[in-house]
């Protein structure tokens, strides 16, 4: 028995030493590679939002392919920049054929395909869908780290932080974004965060329903937000109206200030989403000025 106990204690000691050794090697390798490029063959990005962050951080040099929507100027702000790059769908075979050293995928991407890519030996890194400006900053930090562009990431984050503070002491006005397909984003979405940071809050009628969803125009008209952000559509815009909306929405223009903004400006958690904070901040001041003048 004592011999057995001795062996068991010895085994524990050896196991602990091995574990400590492995952890030491792991952390050492992590810190050594922190600012070192790990990209050899190139990167494949498979989501429009990740594409935008990737291009902002390292440009197109080490990128083999981006998502197919990234090349479509109707939805992408980086369509011109990625013109020369290959476009890829989130399909294991197509991605594997490009032989990338790193694949960037959204947490909403198909788990089946991610598993297939892992089985094929590809390094797949997941980037979370941004639901707030803070998420954009986190994604930038994370990508900066794995792409060896931490410095650039820090620069962009700093610019974001300079812009995002502005609303703190402002009078809160009600605002809502309403898509042409009748979709309203929820309380925990990037656009809601952009509104909050520009000095706007969700209309009181909608506060009971913080979820995203498809809503009839009735809700929007009844809510009468002070600012209504509608989709901009160069093609179907006439007389300052987007003809894809029911015309009744525009009847409210006396009570509600309506602006049209292209969804691509904010739908992705890209650094450019922050520009909208500046634009909305100006609109906030303008509405408040009008409101005060009317008193």
């Amino acid at each position: 028995m004592p011999g057995k106990m001795y062996l068991s204690l010895n085994f524990r000691k050896i196991s602990k030493s091995i574990l400590v050794f492995i952890l030491a090697i792991f952390f050492a390798s992590q810190s050594a590679s922190a600012d070192k490029k790990i990209i050899d063959n190139g990167i494949v990005s498979t989501n429009l939002c990740i594409d935008a962050l990737l291009i902002a951080l390292i440009g197109t040099k080490d990128v083999i392919a981006v998502s197919s929507v990234a090349g479509d100027s109707r939805y992408s702000l980086i369509a011109d920049e990625v013109k020369s790059l290959k476009k890829v769908k989130f399909n294991a075979e197509a991605i594997y054929a490009l032989n990338p050293s790193l694949v960037l995928a959204s947490n909403f991407s198909s788990p089946k395909t991610r598993l297939a890519l892992n089985k094929l030996g590809l390094d797949v890194k997941m980037v979370n869908y941004a639901q707030s400006i803070k998420d954009v900053e986190n994604n930038l930090s994370y990508l900066g780290e794995i792409l060896g562009a931490s410095k650039k990431a820090a620069e962009i984050i700093k610019t974001i932080q300079v812009t995002k503070h502005r609303s703190e002491n402002k009078v809160k006005l009600e605002a809502l974004q309403y898509s042409a397909n009748k979709y309203v984003n929820g309380q925990h979405s990037l656009i809601s965060d952009i509104f909050r940071r520009s000095g706007f809050i969700r209309p009181s009628q909608m506060s009971e329903n913080p979820q995203a969803g498809f809503l009839s125009s009735e809700f929007i008209i009844k809510a009468q937000p002070q600012l209504l952000l509608l989709d901009k559509n160069e093609i179907s815009s006439k007389n300052g109206k987007n003809s894809r909306y029911n015309n009744a929405i525009y009847e409210l223009s006396d009570q509600t200030s309506i602006i049209h903004v292209d969804q691509k400006q904010w739908s992705c958690g890209s650094p450019s989403a922050v520009n909208l904070i500046t634009q909305l901040g100006k609109k906030h001041s303008e509405i408040l000025r009008k409101k005060n003048a009317g008193k």
Partner: peptide, 13 residues
Amino acid sequence: NKTADTIILWELR
């Protein structure tokens, strides 16, 4: 006379 209710009734419903 345009109010939110009239717009909802006459233009939507």
